[in-house]
Design a binder for these strands. Structure first.
Length: 603
RNA sequence: GGGGCUGUAGCUCAAUUGGUCAGAGCGCCGGCCUGUCACGCCGGAGGUUGCGGGUUCGAGCCCCGUCAGCCUCGCCA
């Protein structure tokens, strides 16, 4: 009865009415079985889909006898004939017009009862799914995610291949660079006390490839960062890493957006209008409170610092006195939100650092616009109320949410409120795909704690030409902090629906600019040499102007696949505590291994 | 490190104010059933309510601690 399971004629999603009459050999898993006492029906599943098998006790008693003993997830191989279902079509299945009447069956493998059903219908606890990822991957949803991943990755590879990019691998065992995220370290057996670092990104290597004259590079690159996780952050993730020589920002952006549009078409049938809209970092922060604005809905933040200064309300006055700002969000018809809802928002807002949530409801009394509830009592001047409403476009029935603090905090609070309120009040059109580029990032940020200037992107990011004068090139002077914070970078992020898909920059290729930047960042030439020696060496030998970008592949697949977490599009992801429930990694190692590496563990 | 949510049968969940509240659906096991496709019908097994302590006459429910999972702030080239 042994069947040649290696000679499958079709997969389980392939057969159609046109195949009626064919003799076929199928293999797969028992998805569902219906034993009617005489006739037995089995849904056979493999990667391609599901085909109904029919076992008839009269014509094929031996096969029927075996079929009766089958259970969920048993693995079988069958040989049979494709027949029409006649009137009994199952419209839910692509193969619903046919079934296979089985003449021979071989049980290849039994299965224990699975800990959860292999089905999309019930949402199983994710921890359990990750422990039994093998079974989880059999579910259509997961299977589709990984098939989508393949399709998108292939589309991207083909795009860049077609456009002259070379796919080049870079080292996984590399050297720790001091900037940025925590490194995952790998101890060296041969050099005790020394460590490799897994790359946070192939940043420096791709620059070296450009300086090496390879002109255009791309890689599907695994990146590693030992930081806390999120729904869209894993300790190891995949970037589409690209770099180009002799280009301006627009050239990089053109290729990236064209590629993304192709992915959108292939994965969702979307026609994305190009070029994508550009929005400055300053505008994004002001209007949306985020450097990755969600442009699917309007609901923009309004600055009311000037007018709020005329209100006798301590929170506003204090914030302004300290150089802060007052901004607000007008929630259309937000007056219908209950006290419980707004109190809830306030509580959650406190959880991210805010002192509270000043708010008012807009109403009309006696023909005049008035504020009610919340901090309404501080708005005693009817003319002022009218002026505010005109300025921010608030009308009766709206809810106004305020934030007063330093600009950074206000952006954080109102950005969070904007996204949260939009989501809870159903203001986000689910079928909209809002792409944009965020450009004109500041080159530097300022850390109040360390009182130090730091690079917003990385220290090799080129400032915009028109802002170069602020750097006092060719002198030893350090420009005032205020000037440095005005310098904009040739950096750009591509954003979809409020999630950063990727970012990049044009790199510095002028030695004088690079050394000035290091100086401004507080790095002596010796420091810089120590930290970035191999890049600086390379820059000495003729570096072409170059730049690139890295796209978060996992996020792209998550968004185009409609998943809520990148764990859903990664075959074997880590959980929120950065461990793998399947393999139980990370794990302890034998003392001998440690000894060989010259490592002892602190207790 | 901070904030929040969750933890009850193999899975998904329910259990009014602390008082027959140890329950349902699915799954599983056994039986019946020849056109099902979430097959149907009959019967059955299965739970230390994450764990530890406390309050109480009485705790799934309240309190404290702890563990685990998820979300989030910080952090994240």
């Amino acid at each position: 009865m042994a069947l040649p399971y290696n000679k499958r004629t079709h997969d389980c999603g392939a057969l159609r009415a046109a195949d009626i009459g064919k003799s076929v050999l199928l293999s797969g898993w028992v998805d569902n079985f219906r034993d009617l006492g005489g006739m037995v029906f089995i849904d056979l599943r493999d990667r391609g889909g599901i085909t109904q098998l029919k076992f008839d006790p009269n014509s094929d008693p031996a096969a029927h006898g075996i079929a009766r003993t089958l259970r969920s997830e048993f693995v079988v191989c069958v040989r049979g004939e494709v027949i029409s279902r006649g009137e009994k079509v199952n419209a839910k299945l692509p193969t619903g017009e046919i079934e296979v009447v089985v003449h021979e069956i071989e049980l290849l493998s039994k299965s224990e009862t699975p800990p959860f059903e292999i089905s999309d219908d019930t949402e199983t606890n994710e921890d359990l799914r990750l422990k039994h990822r093998v079974l989880d991957i059999r579910r259509p949803r997961m299977k589709n995610a990984l098939m989508l991943r393949h399709k998108i990755t292939r589309t991207i590879r083909e795009y860049f291949d077609r456009n002259g990019f070379l796919d080049i691998e870079t080292p996984i065992l590399t050297k720790s660079t001091p900037e940025g995220a925590r490194d995952y370290l790998v101890p060296s057996r041969i050099h005790h006390g020394c460590f490799f670092a897994l790359p946070q990104s192939p940043q420096i290597f791709k620059q070296l490839l450009m300086i090496g004259g390879l002109d255009r590079y791309m890689q599907v690159a695994r990146c590693f960062r030992d930081e806390d996780l999120r729904a869209d952050r894993q300790p190891e993730f995949t970037q589409i890493d690209i770099e180009m020589a002799f280009v301006q920002a627009e050239d990089v952006m053109h290729h990236v957006e064209t590629c993304i549009a192709e992915v959108a078409k292939v994965s969702r049938g979307l026609d994305v209008a190009l070029p994508l809209p550009r929005i400055s970092y300053a505008e994004a922060m002001l209007k949306y409170g985020k450097d990755a604005p969600d442009l699917r809905y309007d609901l923009t933040i309004k600055d009311v610092t000037e007018i709020a200064g005329r209100v006798d309300f301590g929170i506003f006055k204090d914030a302004i006195a300290k150089g802060g700002v007052v901004r607000c969000l007008v929630v259309p018809n937000g007056s219908e939100m209950t006290r419980k809802e707004t109190d809830g928002l306030a509580e959650e807002l406190k959880g991210i650092g805010a002192g509270g949530l000043p708010l008012v409801k807009v109403a009309v009394e006696g023909g005049k616009v008035v504020f009610q509830t919340g901090i309404a009592k501080f708005f005693t001047d009817a003319a002022l109320v009218a002026e505010i409403c005109t300025q921010i476009g608030a009308k009766s029935g709206d809810l106004i949410l305020f934030a007063a603090d330093h600009s950074d905090s206000v952006c954080k609070y109102l950005g969070w409120l904007r996204a949260t309120v939009a989501d809870r009040r159903g203001l986000i059109p689910k079928d909209r795909w809002a792409f944009c580029w965020v450009v004109d990032f500041p080159a530097f940020g300022y850390d109040a704690e360390t009182k130090a200037v730091f690079p917003m992107h990385h220290p090799f990011t080129s400032p915009k030409d028109e802002d170069l004068h602020l750097l006092k090139l060719g002198t030893n002077e350090v420009p005032p902090k205020e000037d440095l914070l005005k310098v904009r970078a040739k950096a750009y992020d591509v954003v979809l629906n409020g999630i950063e898909l990727g970012g990049g920059s044009i790199r510095i290729h002028r030695a004088d600019v690079q050394s000035k930047i290091f100086q401004l960042l507080g790095l002596t030439p010796e420091d810089a040499k120590k930290k970035f020696a191999f890049l600086l060496d390379a820059l000495r030998f003729g570096a072409p102007p170059h730049g690139g970008l890295a796209l978060g592949l996992d996020r792209i697949i998550m968004l185009f696949g409609g998943y809520s977490s990148i764990r859903e599009v990664i075959a074997f992801p880590k959980n929120a505590r950065a461990s793998c429930p399947l393999s139980d990694a990370p794990g302890e190692v034998a003392p001998e291994q440690l000894k060989e590496l010259g490592i002892s563990i602190l207790k």
